[in-house]
Each structure stands twice: as structure tokens, then as C-alpha cells.
Nucleic acid binder design. Sequence first.
DNA 1: CTTCGCCTTCGAGCGCGCTCCAAGTCAACC
DNA 2: GGTTGACTTGGAGCGCGCTCGAAGGCGAAG
Lengths: 124, 124
Amino acid sequence: MTSLSIAEAAERTGLTAHTLRYYERDGLLLHSVDRAPSGHRRYTAEDLRWIQMVTRLRATGMPIRDVRRYAALVREGDGNEAERLGLLLAHREVVERQLAEVTGHLRAIDHKIALYENKVAPTA
Amino acid sequence: MTSLSIAEAAERTGLTAHTLRYYERDGLLLHSVDRAPSGHRRYTAEDLRWIQMVTRLRATGMPIRDVRRYAALVREGDGNEAERLGLLLAHREVVERQLAEVTGHLRAIDHKIALYENKVAPTA
DNA sequence: CTTCGCCTTCGAGCGCGCTCCAAGTCAACC
DNA sequence: GGTTGACTTGGAGCGCGCTCGAAGGCGAAG
């Protein structure tokens, strides 16, 4: 089994078949997915690896358009590594800022939680 | 100065005046904001404190409808502290799961970044 | 008294990221 | 040969969270 149907690819990536088609249409993949003689998509292991990278970028909040831009750079081939790096570094900063912000807010919420815990089931 | 105009409240909360009105309309505040004789909103320090809590919940990803439910519980007054606590605890779990997931993905992205850094400016 | 600027309401509009529907093709099984 | 079911496409629709536009009111400055 060297290639997977869209249903199988969906299962392995955790995306839906709808989303996989949408990503392809929207230029988030490196190239059109191969087709079986029937016209059905056939995903290779390489496709899945790239989709996993896309998933990581998306899960960390990168907008679709930036993923598309990153995909375009990779598609272009060697020579633009500095630009790819810049894109990823910029993204990392955004994510870290967000993590810090969320963590801070979470601490404040935890404080509130502690107050309610005392009210609901006072210790001693 | 014991109360603020919507513009001032916007500045202090980091929200827009549009968003402040929207939150009020949508039931995220504990009660309608007081009005000056002119009909203009006047925000009290207490209003701002509550709005800050709303902001923390929103910034950590709590959906509007859940914030609304939490606001409704607080509005009801004493007696439902356990339910409020439950809501906050559930939210905390979601946030922590998300932080862990994002952190994990970020580590993988960092690995990719390291590869590009070697390619772009090889050490040694 | 006029102008300016901040405020009001109501309701429409928008950007994002999917999500789904309709109509059709094709392969395999009974 | 007929039925089933996974797939195809193009395009519409949706939920979320704002965001904005239109039309008008009020109050202070000149």
C-alpha cells in the first residue's frame, strides 16, 4: 500500500476529506494530489508528511494565507530558504507571545478558581 | 472622575467602543451600563473589572456563549458558585490541553527552523 | 447660533475557515 | 444488470466574532 484514498488520508491526518480537498484547492499543498485511473485522489507518504506540517502551522494559529505563502516558497525549490526561515521565525514569535499571554490570563483565572474553591468547599 | 465614557473605557480595556457595545448587547456584561443624562454610557471601575475578566476568558479562547453563561450565573447572585467553578475548571482544562498541543507543535516547528538555519548560515 | 466631535441605535456586512449539498462517475458485489 | 458506496466537482452556506455604516442627538467652543 503505497498510496491512500482520501478517506484514509483523512483518518491519518485528523482532517476531514472536505478539508483535504479545500486545502488542495486553496494552494496549501505542494502540488495537486495524484489520481488513480478512476480520478480518485491517491495520497503518498510524502503528501501526508507535508499535510502534517500544514497541520502544525494551522494548529499554532498560522492563517491559511501564510501557510499558502510558505507552500509557494517550498514549491519554488532551492534558493529561498532564508525567506522560508524568516516566515517560520516570525510565526514562532507570534506563537510565543500568544503562549505567554494565554498563560498569564490563565494564572489570573486560576486565582479566581481558587476563590470559588474556597467558597464551595472551604478548607478547614 | 468616577466613571468613564465609552472611548475611555475602550482605551483602558483594549477593546473598541464597537466591541463594548456588542458585548453589552450580547449579554456578556452583568447589567446594562449606566447612562449619563445625555444617554451616553458611563463605565464604573467595577464595570472595567468585569470587562477585564471577560477579556481574560475571551483571550484564552472561551466562546462568547460560554462567557454569556458565566455572566448569567454571576448575575443570578449567590448560590451557584459550584456551577461557576465547574465552568471555569472545564475551561482551564481546555486551555491547558491547548497550551500543551501548541507547545508540542511549536517544538516540531523549531526543529524545522533549526534545519533552515543550518542551510542558510551553516555553523563552522 | 453654528460647528464640531463624540455619542446613540439598528441592522447589515465581513473575513476566516471550513462544511456541506447536488449531481454525477465509477468499481465492485450480488 | 442493478444496487451500493466511495469518490468527483463547483459552488453555496454557515458559525463565529466582530466591524462598520447610516442617521440622528447632545454639548461645548467660537
